[in-house]
Amino acid sequence: MDIKDIEKTYEQMSDSELIRITTTSAQGLRPEVFGIIENEIKKRNLDLNILNGALAQNMEYSIEEIEHYSQFLRNLPCPICNNETEKLNGTSSHKVKSFIFVTVSETEPTIACPNCLDKTNNSAIISTALFGWWGIPWGIFKTPIYIYRNFRDKKENRIDSSNKTLLSFTLSNIGKIEAYKDDKGKLQEIIELKKS
């Protein structure tokens, strides 16, 4: 795409669309596009940290750096129960629902306090145990696997450091976290989108 066409495309975006794309979909952009984004942000009088979110998506990170970014999330109140005393972490809830020849399975991350993470995994275990078996053939095969995955992930809900689910979530959302690291309200919105 020609650089003038790219510039025109960014000019036509609404503020919210520009912010969303810049903080979530900027990975792999050509270097000259960052100048266009910066000019558009300045022209609209938007927060320049949004550009930092785009740049953050185009860097490589060590585990220590991802852990550092995850601390911005760990120190927030729980998005489910509003608990502020325990550090947040992550879990994946694995669910299977079946009906005769149809089996639907899903894995969904949740960022919350350890008690809410346990409840999320327990709910997924119960739901899968009750509704997973009834599909032929996949329900019968997937149900025990997904129950096992919930028990496995539940073991990491109470570890002292950021677990693998939180680190993965942090890396996936690093542009937003970098852009909003000084805005607890915006960071809270990021993790609230991942409530079960």
Rank of each mutant, 00 (worst) to 15 (best):
G175A: 03
N39V: 02
N89W: 08
I50G: 11
H94L: 06
Q12Y: 03
S16V: 08
Q27I: 05
S172V: 05
C78A: 09
R149W: 11
C81F: 06
N45E: 09
I21M: 08
T9C: 01
G28E: 03
A124S: 15
I36R: 04
Y61C: 13
T165K: 07
K43I: 00
R30G: 07
R152L: 09
L55M: 12
K87V: 05
M59A: 14
I145L: 10
E64S: 15
R30H: 14
H94S: 13
M59F: 12
S162P: 06
I66S: 11
I41D: 05
L117R: 09
F151I: 13
K4V: 05
I21E: 12
L193F: 06
S123C: 03
D2I: 00
N157F: 07
K97D: 07
E40D: 00
I177Q: 00
M13L: 15
L167P: 04
D118Q: 10
A179R: 07
T110L: 02
N75H: 05
K8V: 04
C116E: 09
E178V: 04
D160Y: 07
P114Y: 02
E67R: 15
Y10V: 06
Q57R: 15
N45F: 01
F131A: 09
Q71L: 07
Q27S: 11
E156H: 14
R44G: 06
G53V: 12
M13H: 03
F131T: 11
S14D: 11
K87A: 05
K195W: 02
N115L: 13
Y146K: 10
M1E: 04
K142I: 00
I174K: 01
I100P: 01
